[in-house]
Design a protein around this nucleic acid. Structure first.
Lengths: 163, 163
DNA sequence: TATTGTTATACTCTATAACTATA
DNA sequence: TATAGTTATAGAGTATAACAATA
């Protein structure tokens, strides 16, 4: 088993009234979503940190390790380790930077690209199962509120590294 | 810095239409919420895993390590380590089980109880800031939809350990 | 024989600090 | 002098497996 973050270990959702109860429900939701993300990632032979790297490469193309570190929000040292791991698994390769001989460009391999596509397909299928029978009149306001809360929480937590 | 789980490293939220985009927004929300949880926990000198242990003890009272392991969803070996850490920090203590000489009961110390209360107070204050100016007509449906999604995701991910 | 908790070992993710090669 | 990436070291969380003491 991987991950202590057990929704059942969080307060259970009564018939919500107070702000605190609402926040507890939000926490339980977040933990459950994380489990879901994690399960998909693990099913494709990735860890969360490595999946973040691969996803970043998928979105932005070949990237130096420094750029990866800044985008992902970890130290350069950790990027070395993550790229090492992904290289051993055959998902990425380092190539010399064309103009800066100190740096590498990290590329997705064909295998890496495949895994990215599979993950995306997994989640697309999952999103169908999740949302397809929820009425649009319900989804719109839900997503809108969620975005508001996302923005507020991000502000409250403090600025995150930008991609 | 602690945590690669950077919302900015996830796809940005356009004006939602597709299910996939909705799921991406849900992911971004979950990651942001996790950051928020984590920040509060770290501010009180705890890690996430240890906070889960403390919260469990707070809710259910003195507990054997086996019970903790099952409730939290980690192996007994890890509970040993977590309780060791919490004991070193003075948040919990082991006491002999009254009727089973193999087992310990893990208790919150006064310090542990204090930290639990502080965390709860932190999040209660946070929930005010988050929700207080969101109209009830909006909150009700939001929480309701969120609960539906939580249940579905939990089912899709597979059963979790029960507390 | 089964359960509780431990020691032993290993892997991943995280961090700082010091170092090399290059800019 | 500053930057890109590495090695060195350390701590936390996770896992399996083997073992002691007790049920």
């Amino acid at each position: 088993m991987n991950g202590i973050h057990n929704p059942a270990a969080l307060p259970s959702p009564p018939d919500c009234t107070t702000f605190t109860e609402a926040l507890e429900q939000v926490f339980a939701f977040a933990v459950t979503v994380e489990h879901y993300m994690q399960a998909g990632i693990a099913a494709r032979g990735l860890t969360r940190a490595r999946a973040t790297v691969i996803w970043q490469l998928h979105r932005h193309g070949p990237t130096t390790q420094q750029q990866l570190a800044r985008a992902i929000g970890v130290t350069a040292r950790n990027v070395t380790a993550l790229v090492d791991g992904l290289q051993d698994s055959g998902f990425v390769r380092r190539e010399p930077h064309p103009s800066d001989r100190r740096a590498f460009l990290v590329h997705l391999t064909d295998t890496g690209r495949q895994v990215t596509k599979q993950l995306a397909a997994d989640y697309e299928a999952g999103s169908q199962d999740l949302f397809s029978d929820i009425p649009v009149e319900q989804m719109g306001p839900f997503l809108s509120t969620m975005q508001t809360l996302t923005a507020r929480l991000a502000t409250a937590t403090g600025p995150q590294t930008q991609s």
